[in-house]
Structures are given as structure tokens and as C-alpha cells.
Design a protein around this nucleic acid. Structure first.
Length: 476
RNA sequence: GGCGACGUCGCCAAGUUGGCUAAGGCAAAGGUCUGCAAAACCUUUAUUCCCCGGUUCGAAUCCGGGCGUCGCCUCCA
């Protein structure tokens, strides 16, 4: 498998440190509010990637942190009038709800900052001992000038960074590039004991500490996150980790592209974000997953309602094939012209193509496209009877393996779907009566009345779908 | 200013370590089915890949120049 490695800016053959095992770490949320669709991208991408690794027989030790100690959490907790850890626990719960709706599986470990303070303190103390960090009035900073390779991940050089750096008044650090490993607590803030007094960890240190803690190794196979984390977050992780261990911190850096709105980056600070919670009101989680996975993970995606509507249409096309396969397989027999089928060769080719796409820097967009090609072949074979039961089972195996188990986009239920047919409320009962009347009118070939009912309901946003078994309705 | 990404059909999008007729989806058009629709299914839809020049037997893919869009350099997925 080839992966694009941010640090070397090219695709490289993926070889994990230990054969058959992948240690991967993905930056998790700072839990102080509900997540937006931009946050959902890495969740979905790396969830699917992890499932793919599992499918090719790797054991995956997948670590995602919850940042539950942070300035933003402290500020928000004052607003909401509850303790910071309580607030974080609340939003961890909300995060997990969204993750579940998006079919994102639980990580192997979800370490919290608040539960790893002793390890962090030890890490920081070790950096001071090595001359890579210094203490000022209870704060501890990483000393960038003593760490020569600084900038190697993000491709920046120290001089340029210094030239462009902002210098805040009253800063205690020696150089604007130095970053906080430990922050002295202000009065009344949540804090822990340390050799430097009461305080709490800086932002970057948690990932370094916890990734080593939960892999038991100085080196991760894969570290993932959004592109905006490359600098300074991941750069700083590299500096402190490699400064501490003198070993490569991460072998493969994977960074996902942004979600934009009107071509502008979606971010909390710009205020142009859409909450996952709100989008889920209008679209199933699988549609959101499809939307994300139908573009290569490193490219930007522009978010808008139209794009999700299109995703839903595409996905429903795949769903039709999935359902068709289920129905035909349940008949438990070969097609009438089973002898002339050419499905087995075609399916084998498709499977090869899918694997090739996923092996090449996890190209889910390309992999998905083969299911549309496959769908055409399958419906054609089913319509002409040129199929064997075994071929349909093979096809179903492929659809289920890749679209359900790995990508997690099938099966899905339309939010306002056919389950409304039996809606037990006044409106549902009234519509059922209208449908009975319409069926009666149509049976007497009184299409004028039948169409009137259909048109009027349609104007109300109720769509009638006629099938051989009768008429169904759903909200549009 | 420094670093980086991108520009492919009306829209979305793969291909970009050079080479079979430039994937796939949406939309559109035609058709099958249907009382008519809808849905579903079938068919069609880029001699051309932002522009100009170069390398090559051969370039969307490599090189040079230009235009345009976006991101990081400050909390951020």
C-alpha cells in the first residue's frame, strides 16, 4: 500500500514497524461544543481507513484523544456555570452521539488529558533535563533554538517564522517560537501539582505523551489529522517527541483536506460552520459519509446542501443495487440463462480495481466509482437472466464488504422514507384514506380524480409512489 | 513576504512517478415500463484537460513562463 507522507511530500510504500500491527493516532476533539462537518471529515476518513487496514489483516491500535483540559473549555465552563471536567464530559457525550450517527467506531483507546497528567509532567521534566525546555514563573516552554530540526514537517525555517511571529505583550517565553508545555494556573482555575507549582498541560504535549503511553513505543506508524494541524501543532509534537526520545516520532503523516463553504475554509472562528447535529436532521449519517468519501481525502470539498442532495441520489443508486442483490439472492436460484453469464470475470476485475484504488493512498473516490460500473453489469445480468446464484452472492459480498463494512455508507434509511406509510397520526390516517379513494378511482379508470389527489398531495409536499403492490407515500 | 495545494464536460469528481478510444456521479436529451406520472432500468453527452512556449515517437500528466483560486505562517479538523 502506498500512502502520501506529509513530511516527505510524496507517496511512499507503507511498512509498519511491527509486521501485522499498525499503531495510529488521530487528533481528537477539544470538547467544549458540538462538532461541525469540518471536524467530521477526519473522523470519517480515518475511521474508514482503519477499517480498511483491518480488512487487509492488520491489527490496528487506534488512538484518539479527548482534549478535556484547555483554555476554551475553561472559558466555556465559566459561561455555563459548571466545572471544566463536567463540561468536557458533557461534550464528549455529545461527540460520541454524533460519531455514532456517522457510523464512526470507537477507537481502541480514547485517552483524556485529565487522566494522564503524571505522564505529561514526567515528559516535561525530562525535556527540561535534556536542556530542551525551561521554566519561567511556573510556566514551562519548549526551547526551539535548542532543537535544530524544527520546521522539518511543515517545511518552514526558523528565521522566516521569527520574522513573521507575533509577539504578545507580557510574554514570558524567551523566543516567540517557543511554545508552552506547562501553564501555571491562574487563581481558581483547574490545576494539578507539578515540580513548577500548580498548573496544567499545554496543548501539544498531550498527543506526544499519550501516543507513547498507549502504544508503548516512541514511534507511531501513522499520525493523522487535518491539514491545519501541520503547523504548529504537529510540528511541535515532532520537536518535543523527538527531542525527548531521539527516535522518529511518526513514520507516516496523513493529513486530510478542508471542507470549505463558498470556497472558504469552514472554521469556528469564521463562523461559517454547519453542525453535524443539524445536518443529521436533514440527511442520514451514511449520506454524510458518502459525501466525504467520494472525494479523495487530501482534496478540499466544498460543502452545500446541493452537494449532499447529489450524494444522497448517488448513494440511493448504490442502495438499489444492494437491495436488488438481496432480493435475487433470497430466491436461491440461478437465472434462466445462467450458462451464458460473464459475471465472474467482471466481478473479479472490479474487486482488483477496488483494491488497487484503496492501496494507492486510500483513493475511496475511485474505489466507489467501480460500484457504479458493477451495478450496471449486475442489473443487466439480472434483467437478462445471465447469472448464477453464486455470482450474485459474490457481488453482494463485495458490496457488503466495501460499502458497508469498510466505507460504512450502506445500507441506509431515508429519513423521510417509506416508514411513514404506517404513520400512526391524524395526517397519516387521513392520507391512507385518500390513497384508498384514489385506488378506487383508478380501478374504475377515473384517472381525473386519482390524479387530482396525487397532485394536491404533491403540492403539500407528499409524494405518491405507485407500485404493483399498491401506493406508498413519503414526504419530499 | 515565506511555505504549500489546486485549476479536467453545465455542476461534482478520478486520473497528474508520460503511452490502450480522458473513470464515475449529478443534471440534460432520447427510450423501456406505466392509464398518465414518479421511481427504476437502458442509451447518448469533453479530439480535449486555465493560457503560452518547450522536452518527447508520444503530455491532462515532465520543464519554463503567465493568469486565477485557496490554505498554513494566530485558536482551528
Amino acid at each position: 500500500m502506498r500512502l502520501y507522507n506529509t513530511i516527505n511530500r510524496k507517496k511512499e510504500e507503507f511498512i509498519p514497524l511491527n509486521e501485522g500491527l499498525v499503531n495510529m493516532y488521530v487528533c481528537g476533539p477539544t470538547t467544549y461544543n458540538l462538532i461541525h462537518i469540518g471536524n467530521a471529515r477526519p473522523m470519517i476518513v480515518f475511521d474508514a481507513f482503519r477499517r480498511y487496514l483491518l480488512s487487509i489483516n492488520y491489527k490496528v491500535n487506534f488512538i484518539q484523544n479527548y482534549t478535556d483540559v484547555d483554555d476554551k473549555i475553561i472559558n466555556k465552563s465559566k459561561e455555563e456555570g459548571i466545572g471544566p471536567l463536567e463540561l468536557a464530559a458533557k461534550y464528549i457525550g455529545e461527540y460520541r452521539k454524533d460519531a455514532q450517527s456517522l457510523r464512526v467506531q470507537e477507537a481502541t483507546f480514547h485517552p483524556k488529558v485529565s487522566e494522564n497528567i503524571p505522564q505529561i509532567v514526567a515528559f516535561v521534566a525530562a525535556l527540561i533535563d535534556k536542556g530542551l525546555a525551561y521554566e519561567v514563573e511556573g510556566d514551562v516552554y519548549f526551547d526551539v533554538k535548542n532543537y535544530k530540526p524544527y520546521g522539518k514537517l511543515s517545511g518552514k525555517n526558523i528565521e522566516d517564522l521569527k520574522a513573521g511571529a507575533r509577539v504578545e505583550i507580557g510574554e514570558k517565553k524567551h523566543s516567540p517560537l517557543d511554545f508552552a508545555l506547562w501553564k501555571a494556573a491562574k487563581a481558581g482555575e483547574i490545576s494539578w501539582d507539578s515540580p513548577w507549582g500548580q498548573g496544567r498541560p499545554g496543548w501539544h504535549i498531550e498527543c506526544s505523551t499519550m501516543s507513547m503511553e498507549y502504544t508503548n513505543s516512541p514511534t507511531l506508524d501513522i499520525h493523522g489529522g487535518g491539514q491545519d494541524l501541520i503547523f504548529p501543532h504537529h510540528e511541535n509534537e515532532v520537536a518535543q517527541s523527538e527531542g525527548y526520545t531521539d527516535k522518529t516520532f511518526v513514520n507516516y503523516w496523513m493529513h486530510n483536506g478542508f471542507i470549505t463553504v463558498n470556497k472558504e475554509k469552514m472554521s469556528k472562528s469564521l463562523g461559517n460552520f454547519f453542525l453535524v447535529r443539524d445536518i443529521l436532521e436533514k440527511f442520514p449519517g451514511e449520506v454524510i459519509r458518502y459525501f466525504i468519501l467520494s472525494t479523495h481525502y487530501r482534496n478540499p470539498i466544498d460543502f452545500n446542501d446541493q452537494a449532499l442532495v447529489e450524494s444522497e441520489k448517488s448513494l440511493s443508486k448504490l442502495m438499489n443495487i444492494y437491495k436488488l442483490l438481496q432480493v435475487k439472492i433470497s430466491e436461491k436460484q440461478d437465472g434462466l440463462k445462467a450458462g451464458s453469464e460473464d459475471l465472474p470475470g467482471a466481478l473479479a476485475q472490479i474487486e482488483m480495481n477496488i483494491e488497487k484504488a484503496l492501496q494507492d493512498d486510500f483513493n475511496t473516490a475511485l474505489a466507489i466509482s467501480y460500484f457504479f460500473d458493477g451495478g450496471k453489469l449486475i442489473t443487466k445480468a439480472v434483467n437478462s437472466g445471465e447469472y448464477t446464484l453464486a455470482s450474485l452472492e459474490k457481488a453482494y459480498f463485495l458490496y457488503d464488504k466495501y460499502l458497508n463494512q469498510i466505507l460504512g455508507v450502506l445500507p441506509y434509511e431515508e429519513l423521510a422514507g417509506e416508514e411513514n406509510v404506517n404513520e400512526e397520526n391524524d395526517l397519516g390516517l387521513a392520507i391512507d384514506i385518500l390513497l384508498k379513494v384514489r385506488a378506487l378511482a383508478r380501478s374504475e379508470k377515473n384517472y381525473q380524480y386519482g390524479d387530482l389527489i396525487r397532485n394536491e398531495l404533491n403540492n403539500m409536499g407528499i409524494e405518491i409512489v405507485d407500485t404493483k403492490e399498491g401506493s406508498l407515500w413519503k414526504r419530499k
